[in-house]
Simulated scan of single mutants.
Amino acid sequence: MALTAVGVLRDDGDGGLAPEWTLEGGTAELWAGAVLLIADEDQDLCAEDGHCELYREQPAPVAAVPERLVMTDGLHTYEYVTGHNAAIDKMLGVKS
């Protein structure tokens, strides 16, 4: 299910809550009958642009496909196949 965050409730400093709208027009961008959901446990549920995705079950992990990387420093050429050394994969920024 894809969602769009429309606002965040922030502490107003006086013990109350004030909405911080992520929609440019605030409530003017909403429509009659719109359902607003509360994400009470996960503060970082949606990205900064307000978009997020929810799954009924955790998506199955995608198996990492070995990738052949070729690097050169101008003098030497190096080859590496990902998936053999987690430390090197992390250093190279390879997604596992």
Rank of each mutant, 00 (worst) to 15 (best):
Y55T: 14
E79M: 09
L30P: 06
T82C: 10
W21K: 02
D42T: 14
P66G: 12
A47T: 11
A87T: 10
L23C: 04
N85Y: 11
D40A: 15
H76E: 04
V8S: 08
D49P: 10
Y80C: 12
A39Q: 08
I88H: 00
T27S: 11
L17W: 05
A60C: 14
L75D: 02
V62D: 00
Y80H: 13
L92P: 14
T22R: 06
G15H: 02
L17D: 04
M71W: 11
H84R: 13
R56I: 07
G93L: 01
D89N: 12
E67K: 07
Q43H: 05
P61V: 05
G93E: 03
E67Y: 07
D49C: 08
V8F: 00
L30V: 03
E53C: 14
W21G: 03
E29Q: 08
A32Y: 02
D12A: 04
L92T: 11
L54F: 11
E41I: 06
G74S: 07
H84A: 15
G25K: 07
V65T: 14
T4R: 02
A86N: 04
G83T: 02
I38D: 03
V35I: 11
Q43S: 15
A18S: 12
E48C: 09
E57N: 12
L37M: 04
A64F: 15
L75F: 03
T77M: 01
Y55H: 15
A5F: 01
P59C: 15
G7N: 03
D12S: 08
M71P: 05
Y80T: 13
D73L: 07
A86D: 04
M91R: 12
E29H: 04
W21C: 06
L9H: 01
T72Q: 08
L9W: 05
D40I: 03
L23M: 11
G26S: 06
T27F: 12
D89R: 08
G74D: 02
L75R: 01
E20L: 07
L36S: 07
C52W: 08
A47S: 10
E79F: 06
L75T: 08
D89M: 06
L9C: 09
N85D: 15
A18V: 08
E48V: 03
H51E: 11
T77Y: 01
P59A: 13
A87Y: 02
E24C: 10
T4C: 07
T82I: 05
E20C: 07
D44R: 11
D89P: 14
G93A: 13
D40S: 13
W31G: 10
D40P: 11
T27N: 09
V35L: 09
M1P: 10
M71T: 09
V94Q: 01
D11K: 13
L69T: 13
M1Y: 01
I38M: 02
Y80G: 13
V65G: 06
L75C: 04
I38V: 11
E20K: 00
Y55G: 15
G7Q: 06
P19G: 07
Y78L: 14
V35F: 05
M1F: 13
M91E: 10
D42G: 09
E20N: 05
D49I: 07
